[in-house]
Design a protein around this nucleic acid. Structure first.
Lengths: 102, 102
DNA sequence: CAAATAGTTTGATTTTTATCGAACTTAATG
DNA sequence: CATTAAGTTCGATAAAAATCAAACTATTTG
């Protein structure tokens, strides 16, 4: 079973790193889709994106590496969710910004 | 006399564009320095950065293009400030996030 | 006016990032 | 057990971004 490595604490994540992670339309779409489920987890391919699965996998990596999402495996699926509480603590206002329609 | 073009309204600026602009440490340093003056303007070279003046000029361009800063010329200097009001309207919480020590 | 100051522009280079296809792994399922 | 489903990893490519030196422009100042 695959398992992912996540930053334990968001304290050491620099702001620029999360900005960089959120500077791609696909990744913002992912985060928004996850936020829209109100806590439910989503598998990678449950989010409609016009990219290959390799690229999709890459974008999830980027989001995971900076602590924006948490991913766990279940069977052949990997389910992700936004690390809402921790993000709100570390970067208050960020998620609200992302969730806004803009 | 040089003059700059600024986006008139921030309405059309996508979130990802400002995220991208703020995903560089130099640029975040610039914005923070400007915010720290509480409304006063700063010339490009009044902000300590370990980069050439060409690169510096480039970073100001990027910030200006997405509507984060406003620049006007006075003599040989170009004075910049953060478009606080407009940013707070368009992206509430963003500047607070940037200003935070992190 | 010559020199200094402040910044821009250009052209080149390097680094980073996004992207994909193909081969692979792991788990569920007929 | 063969197949399908869901992702990952690799290697390659292409696009975007950061960086600089050098030459340039415009303005102030001695």
């Amino acid at each position: 079973m695959k398992s992912y490595s996540h930053p334990a604490s968001l304290e050491d994540i620099p702001l620029v790193a999360v900005m960089q992670a959120l500077s791609d339309p696909c990744r913002v779409a992912i985060v928004r889709a996850l936020l829209a489920t109100e806590g439910r987890e989503l598998a990678c391919n449950e989010i409609p994106l016009h990219i290959s699965k390799a690229t999709r996998s890459h974008h999830f990596d980027v989001l995971r590496d900076v602590g924006i999402i948490f991913t766990r495996c279940e069977g052949t699926k990997c389910l992700s969710s936004v690390r809402v509480k921790e993000l709100n603590k570390r970067f208050p206002g960020l998620l609200k910004l992302v969730a806004a329609d803009s």
